[in-house]
Amino acid sequence: MPPPPPVPGLSPRTGLAIHRAEHERHDHHHLFPGTTAHALHRYRTFLAPPGRSPLHPRAAACPACPGCALDDVRTARDVLAETLSRLPPRARAELARTVARLDRHYRARTLPDPRAGDDAPWWHRRLGEGAEGS
């Protein structure tokens, strides 16, 4: 079996641990081969626009489709949380450091939604608008 493709910004060891976690048989529809790298890319891309103006997460146009669901940065962050929960300690720590840096940037570039309940993860409780691409 060829080695898994690298996950940009992470060590090969952590990439292999992610690959293994994505290939385990579980009942979760968010985590499948390659989805962590895609989610990490989506999170970085969302935060990439220069400037300090607020960014607004948007719902995916097709949230039921596992690939399209990642168009919503909040779903991408859900995938990263799921991956973190399945990794061994060293790989979890490396990915957690990367995600924590992105989380700080996300908090700085998005606004809290005062109408959001406390039942969702914090990254879902940010002001959003419309559907992605609309």
Rank of each mutant, 00 (worst) to 15 (best):
M1W: 13
P2D: 11
P3Q: 02
P6Q: 09
G9H: 00
L10M: 10
S11A: 05
R13M: 06
T14N: 00
G15S: 09
A17W: 08
E22G: 07
R25C: 11
H28Y: 13
H28K: 04
L31E: 12
A37R: 01
A39V: 02
L40E: 09
L40C: 09
H41T: 11
F46P: 01
L47N: 02
L47G: 04
A48W: 01
A48N: 12
A48L: 14
R52L: 02
P54V: 07
H56E: 04
A59F: 13
A59Q: 08
A60R: 04
P63V: 09
P63H: 06
A64L: 13
C65R: 06
C65E: 12
G67C: 14
C68L: 14
A69L: 01
L70C: 05
D71N: 08
D71Y: 03
A76D: 06
V79S: 01
A81H: 14
R86G: 06
R86P: 00
L87I: 07
P89I: 06
E94I: 12
T98P: 02
A100L: 05
R101F: 07
L102Q: 11
D103K: 07
D103P: 12
R104E: 06
H105Y: 08
H105E: 09
H105I: 11
Y106K: 05
Y106M: 08
R109Q: 10
R109T: 02
R109G: 03
L111D: 12
P112Q: 04
P114R: 09
A116I: 02
G117M: 02
G117A: 00
W122K: 09
R125W: 02
R126L: 03
G128A: 06
E129H: 11
E129P: 04
E129D: 14
A131D: 14
E132I: 11
E132M: 13
E132Y: 15
G133H: 10
G133Y: 10
S134R: 11
S134T: 13
